[in-house]
C-alpha cells in the first residue's frame, strides 16, 4: 500500500507482511555539485519536492503518462535531487529498495525488471542506506541525479538505449520476510497514536557531478526479502512550465546556485560508515557522459554520441 504522506513522502506499508513493515521515500532538493571530475562530499537537503497523485491531473496529461499511474513532482531543468529513505518509527523495518530512472537501474545500470537480483545487486537496503544521491558508477563513487528534458539526449535512459521513452524515476520496495525480521529481534518500533498536449516532453535524470557515497552490499541475502509483497511507484517529473500548466500553480523555489549555497553558509556533510562493505559500481553507468560534458560538447558544436 503506497500513500503520499505530508504532501512529500511516499509511504510504503505492508500490513500483510508485518504490522511494522513500512518505509518512507522522499526526494530532496539540493545543490547541483560542480561537474569537474573532482569528487565532492554529499550536499545537504534543502527540503522535499512536493508529490501529487498523477490522477489528479489526468485530463491535462498525455494518455501514456496517465497509464503509468503513480505520482508527479515538479523539478527545474538541471536541478539536482537526492533520495532519502526513512524507516520512521525509530526502529525501522528492513526493506530492499530499487531505484531506476527512465527504467534504467541506478545501482546496477541494468534495464528495469521486476524483482531483486544480486551479481550485480540492483537494490539498496534500509536501514543502513539512508540516502542515494545518484548513479553508482564505481565503488564508493556516484554521479549526482540531475534533471534534464527528455529529447536532448542527456538522460541515462537516452544515453544507454538511444530513446527517451520513459523518463521519470521508478522505485520498488520489498519488505523483509516477517520470519526473518522476527529472528533479528530488533527493538519494537515506537508508535504514537498514531493537456499539456504535444508540447509534453517529460523529464528524466542524467548523471551530474561526482561525489563520494557508498552503496552497501546486502548483508541479509536475497532470500530475506518478501518479493511476493513488494510495492512500486512511477514518479513522473514535470519542469516548471509543465507544472504550472498542469496544476495552475508555481513550483517551489528556484534551484540554488553554488554562490547562493556559499552565501547561505550551508554545510556539506559526509556519511561515515566505514565498517560496512560497499558494492562495486556499474561499469555501464560509469562510461556515460555527464551533464557538464554534454554541455561542453554542445558549446563546441557537436552533440554527444548515442549508443547504437
Amino acid at each position: 500500500m503506497i500513500t503520499i504522506v505530508g504532501g512529500g513522502q511516499l509511504s510504503f506499508r505492508f500490513p500483510k507482511v508485518h504490522r511494522f513493515a513500512e518505509c518512507g521515500i522522499e526526494f530532496q532538493r539540493t545543490l547541483r555539485i560542480p561537474d569537474d571530475e573532482r569528487t565532492y562530499p554529499l550536499p545537504p537537503g534543502l527540503g522535499r519536492f512536493p508529490l501529487r497523485h498523477l490522477d489528479d491531473f489526468a485530463d491535462r496529461l498525455p494518455r501514456e503518462t496517465v497509464r503509468r499511474g503513480g505520482v508527479i513532482m515538479p523539478i527545474h531543468q538541471s536541478e539536482a535531487l537526492w533520495i532519502k529513505f526513512e524507516g520512521r518509527w525509530g526502529s525501522p523495518y528492513p526493506c530492499a529498495i530499487k531505484v531506476a530512472t527512465g527504467k534504467v537501474c541506478a545501482i546496477s545500470g541494468e534495464p528495469w525488471h521486476e524483482g531483486l537480483t544480486q551479481g550485480p545487486q540492483n537494490y539498496v537496503v534500509v536501514p543502513g542506506q539512508p540516502w542515494l544521491d545518484g548513479y553508482c558508477v564505481a565503488k564508493r563513487t556516484i554521479r549526482q541525479f540531475v534533471a534534464m528534458s527528455l529529447g536532448d539526449g542527456h538522460t541515462v535512459e537516452e544515453q544507454l538505449t538511444g530513446q527517451g521513452v520513459h523518463g521519470g524515476l521508478q522505485t520498488a520496495v520489498y519488505p523483509m520476510k516477517s520470519e526473518v525480521y522476527e529472528k533479528l529481534k530488533l527493538p519494537e518500533p515506537f508508535f504514537g497514536v498514531r493537456e499539456v498536449g504535444s508540447r509534453w516532453r517529460g523529464m528524466g535524470l542524467a548523471p551530474g557531478g561526482r561525489m563520494s557515497q557508498e552503496i552497501y552490499e546486502d548483508e541479509f541475502g536475497l532470500d530475506a526479502w518478501d518479493q511476493d509483497h513488494g510495492g512500486r511507484c512511477f514518479v513522473t517529473m514535470a519542469n516548471s512550465q509543465q507544472w504550472m500548466a498542469i496544476t495552475g500553480k508555481r513550483p517551489p523555489t528556484q534551484p540554488p546556485t553554488v554562490r547562493e549555497y556559499g552565501r547561505a553558509g550551508l554545510p556539506w556533510f559526509l556519511h561515515y560508515d566505514r565498517d560496512r562493505e560497499a558494492i562495486e559500481g556499474a561499469e555501464r553507468l560509469g562510461v556515460l557522459k555527464t551533464v557538464g560534458e554534454a554541455a561542453q560538447a554542445e558549446r563546441h558544436g557537436w552533440r554527444s554520441s548515442k549508443p547504437d
Binding site: 500500500m1 500513500t3 496517465v66 510495492g231
Partner: peptide, 10 residues
C-alpha cells in the same frame, strides 16, 4: 479509506 497511489502499466 485512505487514498492510495495507483500503480499503472509501465
Amino acid at each position: 479509506v485512505v487514498r492510495l497511489v495507483r500503480d499503472g502499466d509501465w
